[in-house]
């Protein structure tokens, strides 16, 4: 039996986190969502105390990442995830206010799977998240590594 996918949300703004979670739930996705408001906490959870990522071995993850974090940039986190052998297969969705084309390009180069700009217009925002939720419901996360 496949293990349920856990959604890891790294988002410093609790309001954004709440809005995202709410809209994901509205789209009918009921997977567990684990939120972190700082990069350090997220890194500890993802890579474990030893930083090897062994703790997540065998877990199916989907990572929602904000780029503007108070203690580090999301780009660093993205880079480390994609360089770690236990985590690199997990899809990463970058969800941020930055719509700078250079930054978008850089994220895709580093292995980000989806890049979404948070629109201020709430309709669009809600739509984007709901569609992301739909996307989650059909996405096939690779089976946990043995």
């Amino acid at each position: 039996m496949t293990q349920p996918v856990t959604i890891i949300m790294v988002e410093d703004d609790e309001g954004h986190a709440r809005l995202i979670e709410r809209n994901i739930r509205r789209s009918g996705v009921n997977n567990e969502i684990v939120s972190f408001t700082t990069g350090t906490d997220a890194m500890r959870h993802l890579f474990g105390a030893d930083g090897s990522g062994l703790v997540q071995k065998g877990n199916a993850l989907l990572i929602l990442l904000d780029l503007n974090l108070p203690d580090m940039t999301g780009i660093d986190i993205l880079k480390q995830i994609k360089e770690n052998k236990y985590l690199k297969a997990s899809p990463v969705v970058v969800l941020t206010t930055t719509d700078d084309s250079q930054e978008i390009k850089r994220c895709y180069e580093l292995g980000c799977n989806v890049y979404i700009t948070k629109p201020v217009n709430y309709e669009n925002f809600a739509n984007a998240i709901r569609q992301l939720g739909l996307f989650f419901s059909v996405i096939q996360v690779p089976p946990a590594a043995p």
Partner: peptide, 13 residues
């Protein structure tokens, strides 16, 4: 922009 997303979002809520 970041707080604005919240204001807008929660206003809509």
């Amino acid at each position: 922009r970041s707080p604005l997303v919240n204001i807008m979002g929660f206003t809509s809520e």
